[in-house]
Simulated assay, not measured.
Amino acid sequence: MLGEKHLLSTEFPEYSAVIQDLKSTDPEFMGMSKRYHQLDHKIRGLELNKVPTTDEHFGTLKLERAELKDKLYRILVSKGH
């Protein structure tokens, strides 16, 4: 859906406590989650405000967000069990 928020806590509600813990104790996780949030915010802004951008640029942003989400998920799974 256009403009849908993809917050980590919404995407992975079963890991909410782990997400909060890692954001405060793991600098690498914190940096990656901050970048993920920035990308999500930028993508939503482009979608909702219909800001002109190339398909390539938009696709690059979405791909980076998806790759970060996968990396963050792998960390959550390894720390959450």
Rank of each mutant, 00 (worst) to 15 (best):
T53I: 15
L7N: 03
E14R: 11
N49W: 12
R65I: 01
S9P: 04
L72P: 00
L8Q: 01
M1C: 14
K42D: 05
L39W: 05
T53Q: 15
T60G: 08
Q20K: 09
K79H: 04
F12Y: 11
K42R: 14
Q38W: 12
H41L: 08
L63K: 13
G59M: 11
S24E: 03
L22S: 02
L48F: 08
V77L: 14
S78N: 10
D55N: 13
S16H: 07
L22F: 06
E14M: 08
I19V: 01
D26L: 01
A17F: 00
M30K: 13
D55M: 12
Y15P: 07
P27H: 06
F29Y: 12
T54E: 11
Q20D: 02
D26N: 03
F29N: 01
R35K: 06
E4L: 09
K50C: 15
Y15E: 01
L2S: 15
D55V: 12
K79Q: 01
Y73Q: 03
L22Q: 01
Y15R: 07
G45L: 14
N49F: 14
H6A: 05
H6N: 01
Y73M: 10
R74P: 01
V77M: 12
E11N: 03
A66V: 00
K69F: 04
T25A: 06
E67D: 13
H81C: 12
A66T: 00
K50M: 13
V77C: 10
M30R: 05
K34C: 05
E47F: 07
L22I: 00
Q20L: 11
L46F: 14
S24W: 05
K62M: 15
D26S: 09
L22K: 06
L46P: 02
Y36R: 00
K42G: 05
A66I: 00
K50P: 11
L72Y: 00
V18H: 00
A17D: 04
M32F: 13
G3C: 04
T10V: 02
T54I: 03
M1W: 15
V18P: 03
V51K: 10
F29L: 08
P13S: 05
S78T: 07
E4M: 15
L68Q: 12
E11S: 10
R44A: 06
H57L: 12
E28C: 10
M1H: 15
R35F: 08
H41M: 13
Q20W: 04
K50F: 15
L2G: 14
D70Q: 11
L72Q: 02
R74T: 06
E64D: 10
E47H: 10
L46H: 13
D40C: 05
Y36S: 00
L39N: 00
D21M: 13
I75A: 10
M32G: 07
H57K: 12
L7E: 03
E11F: 07
T53A: 14
Y36H: 07
L46C: 09
K42I: 15
I75V: 09
M32N: 11
L48D: 08
L76V: 01
L76A: 05
K34P: 11
Y15Q: 04
Y73T: 05
P52S: 13
R35A: 06
F58T: 07
Y73K: 10
E56Q: 09
Q38I: 09
V51N: 11
L48E: 13
S78P: 01
T53G: 11
E47T: 02
V51M: 08
N49R: 14
